[in-house]
């Protein structure tokens, strides 16, 4: 089955980095969103089985997206990808339902390991 991946980040470069870091063998279709509001719209449109989510973004930040997804009991596996490396940020996103926290700059091996741990590849 092809997995629908949504990459959410306000930086075009960061979205490209995540795209490039995804394992080649993973069969995916990729959509992108440039902020939290776009992410929720894309999720509602059925574009996300898996979401890579930045935290610090304009309009609606990553924490607010996680809260909204939790509230609606969304069936999406969220990996937070962020430069905010404070342990409390990490704890907070996990408590809001994120599967894992991946720090920027993204390391392709770490990302692959997190996908394996989640049973996605």
């Amino acid at each position: 089955m092809i997995t629908k991946v949504l990459i959410v980040d306000d930086s075009a470069m960061s979205r490209k980095i995540i795209r490039k870091a995804l394992p080649h063998e993973w069969e995916v279709t990729i959509s992108e969103a440039a902020d939290g509001s776009e992410a929720l719209v894309a999720y509602q449109a059925g574009k996300a089985d898996v979401m890579f989510l930045d935290l610090t973004m304009p309009n609606l930040d990553g924490f607010a997206v996680l809260e909204a997804l939790k509230k609606q009991e969304a069936k999406v596996c969220v990996f937070v990808v962020s430069a905010d490396i404070q342990p409390k940020a990490h704890e907070r996103v996990i408590s809001l339902g994120a599967m894992a926290f991946i720090k920027k700059p993204v390391d392709a091996e770490i990302l692959k390991n997190e996908l394996k741990k989640a049973g996605l590849i």
């Binding site: 306000d10 610090t56 304009p58 430069a83 905010d84 490396i85 404070q86 409390k88 920027k104």
Partner: peptide, 23 residues
């Protein structure tokens, strides 16, 4: 952004509080 994430984390460790970062 990534560099400031590191700065925010260092600041959090000296003030012992969560530091919310802006863009």
């Amino acid at each position: 952004n990534i560099a400031m994430g590191q700065a925010g984390s260092s600041l959090a460790s000296i003030v012992n509080e969560f530091v919310e970062l802006s863009i």
